[in-house]
Amino acid sequence: ELTQEQLSLLNYILDAYNKYRIPLDMTKSLLQEQFSADENFILLTEMATSHVQVLVEFTKRLPGFQSLDHEDQIALLKGSAVEAMFLRSAQIFTRKLPHGHNEVLEDRIRKSGISDEYITPMFNFYKSIGELQMTQEEHALLTAITILSPDRPFVKDVLSVERLQEPMLEVLHTFCKLHHPHDPQHFARLLGRLTELRTLNHHHAEMLMSWRMN
């Protein structure tokens, strides 16, 4: 079972995760079906910026984060932003959206100018997240764990980051055992997605380059 302390940590992270989302008016404009290539580019860029902003607000609420060295805070966010964004996007694509919304969203991404060799692994990742049928708690915790990865480039005080990440891994581990008693591998599967995210992150820089070229 989760201890009282672990339960509070989980609820606290879940609240922050639910609170900080991309503003609704922005997601609404994403669903308008008519758009030019330029409009699409601008909107996707604005979305990405907004996404980083809400991610930072979520991160600020992670217990202990603000006590870390300021440059380490930036190194953690810089190293993880792309992965956390892929995770949140995967959650959006996994949800049962109103009829047709998925198609409009996918259409926008496919017409963004990013080449297929980068788009395909991204949608494969979304699919692999969908197969796990993750709960909101798991999404919130996995995002926090991704952000608090001590092995990001330029992190100086690795030990302090480890101390923040570890209790979250323990909560996620126990949570998985409680909520997936028939799938003892669930926790391992979640951690496996983190490896996939690293690969996507690695290709992201190349993806941006190809986008700019187009």
């Binding site: 860029t45 604005e46 930072v56 930036i74 966010l77």
Partner: peptide, 21 residues
Amino acid sequence: PASNLGLEDIIRKALMGNFDD
């Protein structure tokens, strides 16, 4: 415009300010 800001700039600005304001 936001599109001219790099990831690190956005992170630094967001860390300094408060999104709620």
